[in-house]
């Protein structure tokens, strides 16, 4: 991995803005165009929000780890947090969703399919699943994830530049 930024934060909402600013500065220093910086900062922000919302932070040592790195002609954003066995069904759903999004050449197609799907209103509220599709489409990134044997979930987003 070439030039890299690594940030470790407590899983608290008020940490978000600081990470956004650091990510923005890092991408700007590496010469990216403003619209690309905007998209990637949105990706960092959304992935961190998911991480704080769904991570398992049962120990005070548990943190959210964020990294941004340039490799060849792409930028990779990675956000990690601990998960436990209770998250397995959510992770399976994330797996299905990411494979489904990446099944389309154009994430726009996944986005409009999802919009169509959520227009079918559940009689009782359920998660729309639009968030992750939006990250792929508006961020222009290829999403993937991996859960280590130790239970660390790392979601990665790659954007060609």
């Amino acid at each position: 991995m070439g030039n890299t930024l690594k940030i470790s934060i407590q899983p608290e909402w008020d940490q978000l803005e600081s990470v956004r600013v650091q990510a923005h500065t890092f991408l700007e220093d590496n010469g990216l165009m403003a619209n690309l910086i905007h998209s990637l900062v949105m990706v960092v922000s959304e992935l961190m929000e998911n991480s704080i919302k769904y991570g398992n932070f049962s120990s005070p040592d548990n943190r959210v780890e964020v990294s941004l790195g340039f490799y060849k002609n792409s930028v990779t954003v990675e956000v990690s947090n601990p998960v436990n066995e209770d998250s397995m069904s959510d992770l399976e759903e994330l797996d299905r969703m990411i494979q489904w999004i990446r099944g389309y050449q154009n994430p726009f197609e996944a986005y409009i399919e999802r919009l169509k799907e959520i227009s079918k209103k559940p009689l009782h509220d359920k998660a729309s699943g639009l968030g992750i599709v939006r990250i792929a489409y508006e961020g222009g990134v290829t999403l993937d994830f991996f859960v280590s044997e130790e239970g660390l979930l790392t979601v990665s987003a790659i954007r060609k530049v």
Partner: peptide
């Protein structure tokens, strides 16, 4: 992608002399 449980599952079966995966890595990011 969810080796947290998968590897534990496979470990029960012991290690392998030969492992192959022909059509998987085309779908995995670096």
């Amino acid at each position: 992608r969810t080796m947290m449980t998968t590897r534990r599952l496979i470990k029960k079966l012991g290690n392998f002399d030969f492992i192959y995966s022909m059509g998987l890595f085309d779908y995995l990011t670096p």
